[in-house]
């Protein structure tokens, strides 16, 4: 508000302000509605139920693990896209962003066809190592990582492109190898971008529903994350669904707010 009144360009035009406020209300009102309908008096007893704790614990655990997986593979992938020129670069970048626009359920089906027990890779995993991924917690992590990784890659690639290349060039002229430059110069330079991308990635993984229920199924304590618990609770016990939703909302807001002040500006 302060910057608006201090602006030399005069009042904010109505044509922009009205739709902007409508948009704001549209985004905020449903959340307010959720809080208004929350059965606060019974909140404590409902939260103490083991199913709620299981689902919340599993959600936090799998989202964190999925983010780590995304970091380990996604940061090098972003570096490849930003710093190495090779034929088909544009195609590769387009492919990386596909899961961003793909309906997550489709992602889940695709994962089943590749990593399922009868899948292209999954068949071999099963016969050679006895590993089957569907219906396991590892399957939840994979489903979440599949959907969330593009968020990390895009945001890290953006940070890499915005970073000043001269530092890397200076290090290279002083004889540093490409790996040393990456480790000692590039990484510290884009650390805020990586953290921001990691948070986006974590938040997306936490909210993942379609790919998870399709690929990993739904079993309390093993693959039933919070969004799945909300969906199924809504069918028979809407009050429980509201409580679960409020918890998920609180966790997301707390993490985003807490980290935002520190790392993202």
């Amino acid at each position: 508000m302060k910057t608006i009144s201090a602006s030399p360009r005069g009042r904010v035009p109505w044509v922009l302000l009205v739709p902007a406020l409508l948009g704001l209300a549209f985004l905020v009102l449903p959340l307010a509605g959720l809080l208004i309908r929350t059965p606060w008096p019974t909140m404590g007893t409902r939260l103490a139920q083991p199913e709620v704790r299981d689902a919340l614990g599993l959600s936090l655990f799998t989202a964190t693990l999925a983010t780590l997986v995304c970091m380990v593979c996604g940061v090098p992938l972003a570096w490849l896209l930003a710093r190495v020129s090779f034929p088909g670069l544009r195609l590769v970048r387009a492919l990386v962003t596909v899961p961003l626009v793909l309906p997550p359920v489709v992602g889940g089906v695709a994962l089943l066809l590749v990593l399922g027990r009868r899948g292209l890779v999954g068949r071999w995993l099963d016969s050679a190592f006895g590993i089957t991924l569907p219906f396991t917690t590892a399957g939840v992590v994979l489903a979440e990582a599949f959907v969330a990784m593009p968020f990390l890659v895009i945001s890290v690639e953006g940070a890499l492109r915005a970073a000043d290349l001269r530092y890397e060039e200076a290090a290279a002229t002083l004889g540093a190898s490409r790996w040393t430059v990456f480790r000692r110069v590039t990484l510290p330079l884009v650390a805020p971008g990586i953290v921001a991308g990691g948070i986006l990635c974590w938040a997306r993984a936490l909210g993942e529903f379609g790919a998870t229920i399709t690929f990993a199924g739904n079993f309390p304590g093993r693959t039933q994350t919070m969004p799945l618990a909300v969906y199924l609770a809504l069918e028979t016990d809407p009050q429980a669904a509201i409580v679960l939703s409020v918890v998920l909302l609180a966790v997301s807001v707390a993490v985003l707010a807490g980290l935002r002040d520190r790392w993202i500006s």
């Binding site: 009868r118 229920i213 739904n218």
Partner: peptide
């Protein structure tokens, strides 16, 4: 291993051999 959201989803898991 899973409690599916509807009967068709349960059937699909068998059709796919999962």
């Amino acid at each position: 291993v899973s409690q599916e959201q509807d009967v068709k989803a349960a059937l699909t898991k068998v059709e796919l051999g999962e």
